[in-house]
């Protein structure tokens, strides 16, 4: 097995384990979000292996560098040390969710199945900022505009929601 495949499986296991760690860690929200960071970074590494370099870097910058930091910031700002909620009918929920999850997983895996073509050799410049940038500002320029509008509205929305006194 070549190095990249070994790396892929290492990062895959890392991603799955830390994702599970995030979902199953009911005691400590900070630890859960740090697990999420590990998943993000593992995914970024997998993107590098898939030769999507720019996406990998952006994944780290945005997800690890901004989004999860924001999560952490809010957790720390609100000082949520532990979530010790009153017990509810959780076993039912968990059982149902697990069942549903297994069902969906089987469906997804069946859907992909074997039979995808061989992975080709990528053309020159694949995954770099140049090609992506040119595409973004020619064919997909409308998408970029829409994204900017979306971000603007998100900023305004977050401001309104988080503002203490709206007047």
């Amino acid at each position: 097995m070549e190095v990249s495949a070994i790396l892929f499986y290492i990062f895959a296991v890392m991603a799955v384990v830390s994702a599970l760690g995030m979902v199953l860690n009911v005691r400590n929200t900070v630890a859960a979000s740090l697990s999420l960071v590990v998943t993000m970074i593992a995914l970024a590494a997998i993107y590098v292996l898939l030769e999507a370099y720019l996406i990998a870097v952006i994944q780290i910058m945005v997800y690890a560098g901004a989004i999860v930091v924001l999560f952490l910031f809010v957790i720390m700002l609100l000082n949520l040390r532990e979530d010790d909620f009153a017990p509810g009918r959780q076993w039912l929920v968990k059982f149902g969710a697990g069942l549903l999850g297994v069902f969906v997983l089987i469906q997804l895996l069946k859907l992909v199945g074997p039979g995808l073509p061989e992975v080709p050799v990528v053309p020159e410049g694949y995954g770099g900022y140049r090609q992506l940038g040119i595409l973004l500002y020619t064919d997909y320029v409308l998408l970029v505009e829409m994204a900017s509008l979306l971000l603007l509205s998100a900023i305004v929305g977050a401001l309104i929601l988080a503002k203490r006194n709206i007047d």
Binding site: I41, Y53, V57, I60, M61, A64, G65, V69, Y129
Partner: peptide
């Protein structure tokens, strides 16, 4: 790498 400066930003954000 091609994206050298971005690498520094990414690392800096971690």
């Amino acid at each position: 790498p091609d994206w050298g400066l971005l690498y520094i930003f990414a690392i800096g954000s971690i």
